[in-house]
Amino acid sequence: MYAQMVKTAGTGVKKPSEMTAQERDFQAKIDRNEKIEPKDWMPDDYRATLIRQIGQHAHSEIVGQLPEGNWITRAPTLERKAILLAKVQDEAGHGLYLYSACETLGVSRDELLDMLHQGKMKYSSIFNYPTLNWADIGAVGWLVDGAAIMNQVQLQKTSYGPYARAMVRICKEESFHQRQGYSIMMKMATGSKAQQAMAQDALNRLWFPSLMMFGPPDKDSVHSAQSMAWRIKINTNDELRQRFVDQTMPQMEYLGLTCPDPSVKWNEDKGGYDYTDPDWDEFFAVLRGNGPCNTERMAARVDAWDNGAWVRDGLMAHANKKAARVAAE
């Protein structure tokens, strides 16, 4: 899940009797599973919440290029290099689709980036963790994309049309991402002793941060109810986390790797795995800026933007000159 801790605007879910007629129509439309489109009337809080959520989602895609991009020049074969580059390029594309969806709400991409660079908007905590060995590239695809897909599949049904359509496109493209990650893990887990050690090391470091991607436990997630009523959040954090653990454990067993959570155990009664939550203090510390890579990730994004200003301005100036020349003819 690339949107965590999105603060829902407003004062919580209103009863129908507290709503204006316009708000009642709006809610009824959502309840009928109709899409809300850019020019439709929508409550200010719905708009504000969506900008936060889609913006954070978009930021996560482009910051998410960095940890994997870290290994593009060191990919061990030409084919792995091409696959990884294509994959990280897809993340850039997904960022672009999401910024576009956000722009339909009346905020520009430059404004969103400005808020990211000033630390006023967040991106997913997961990208503040480093990729330290090649198996991390496998583990990121397998676990991080796996967790993201779990959320994004649901969001294809979200109430806001442009967001839902971006999700459809993203899900279609993302189907190869998790598979390429798992294919790296299979090679590593069945490879030399050193490769097996890399695979286990990557899993050890990324397991709990992956669980954090779904956000804090439902009991501490105060903003969910309104977002769920608006259908911009479809499942609760804990539901998705449970589903993720249930899906991932058999895959881990197939690889012959050991879960870094020793308490993970199949629970016949609930038909799912019992597991230990990640360290939520660490999660909040990372969100506050104290993860291993927060400073570097932000610096990389700000540098790319600042160093690119002359390019954006130069190409725009040329386009304006060209248009002026055509107009003068």
Binding site: L96, Y97, S100, E103, R109, A166, R169, L315, M316, H318, A319, K322, A323
Partner: peptide, 12 residues
């Protein structure tokens, strides 16, 4: 319609 993007002019 497939989506949107930014560019300085039509050609780009």
């Amino acid at each position: 319609h497939v989506g949107s993007l930014h560019a300085p002019d039509a050609e780009m």
